[in-house]
């Protein structure tokens, strides 16, 4: 288990019980209609099943809330962001399309980053995420070179990348980026549910955007970060 998980266990939330109590209260006076908006009850995800993060780029506005929430949640230096966006203009004025996608660790099933690490700091969790033992990491940059997506970033002799908020998901909570997004663009859930939801969404999108696609079912034996794109992945130079 990574160091961060142990560390979080020190935190004792005295009033947290109170918080969920309000949530129930709100639902209660809502006559059970709270589910109407599709908002998940975030506190009881399974902790031992294959999980995933579904990023719907057709709803994202690049507001950067996820990036900053992630920085706070994961105690990152101001200069380090685990989420960035890659974008591209296609066509010319006025018929120009702006394609973009979240860029962060894809949590590859076949995580080649892991294979090259000389101190075995990277590993796959039961839930399917690629995590880093921060303490062991020597910042050598081997993973940076082997990752097909150029994700790992070396800063002050440590590697930084998304670890799917281990300290939250291992206790059944949503990652910070998911919780903060106001654009309905990021979902956390069991992998199978997400794949189903994603396929449905892509089908709907294809009515208006014939090139719409789901990225991540096959790549690197499957990615636990699934991307819904309004265009073909190749147009985004994801690989």
């Amino acid at each position: 288990m990574s160091k961060q998980v142990d560390r979080r266990n020190f935190i004792k939330y005295s009033a947290l019980a109170g918080v969920s109590a309000f949530a129930t209260l709100a639902t209660a006076c809502n006559d059970g209609e709270a589910e109407e908006t599709g908002s998940e009850v975030q506190d009881d995800f399974p902790v031992d099943e294959k999980m995933g993060i579904l990023m719907d780029n057709s709803l994202c506005v690049e507001c950067q809330a996820c990036r900053v929430a992630c920085q706070n949640e994961n105690e990152l230096p101001v200069e380090q962001a685990l989420i960035s966006f890659k974008s591209k203009e296609v066509g010319s004025y006025p018929d120009v399309k702006y394609h973009f996608s979240r860029h962060s660790c894809m949590h590859c099933e076949d995580a080649v980053c892991k294979d090259g690490c000389p101190v075995d700091a990277l590993s796959k969790t039961e839930q399917g995420f690629t995590t880093l033992d921060f303490e062991s990491c020597i910042g050598c940059g081997m993973c940076e070179q082997s990752c097909p997506y150029g994700v790992p970033s070396i800063f002050e002799e440590k590697m930084y990348k998304c670890d799917a908020c281990q300290h939250l998901v291992t206790v059944g909570e949503s990652p910070a980026c998911v919780s903060t997004c106001a654009a309905n663009a990021i979902k956390y859930g069991t992998y199978d549910d997400l794949v189903k939801a994603a396929q449905q969404r892509v089908e709907t999108l294809q009515e208006r955007y014939p090139e719409a696609s789901l990225y991540g079912l096959e790549e690197q034996d499957g990615l636990s970060l699934l991307l819904i794109l309004k265009t073909e992945a190749s147009k985004l130079e994801l690989i």
Binding site: R7, R8, F10, V68, Q71, N72, E75, P77, V78
Partner: peptide
Amino acid sequence: DESCEMPFAKE
């Protein structure tokens, strides 16, 4: 404090 989540914890 290792568990501090403020971005400027170490700043």
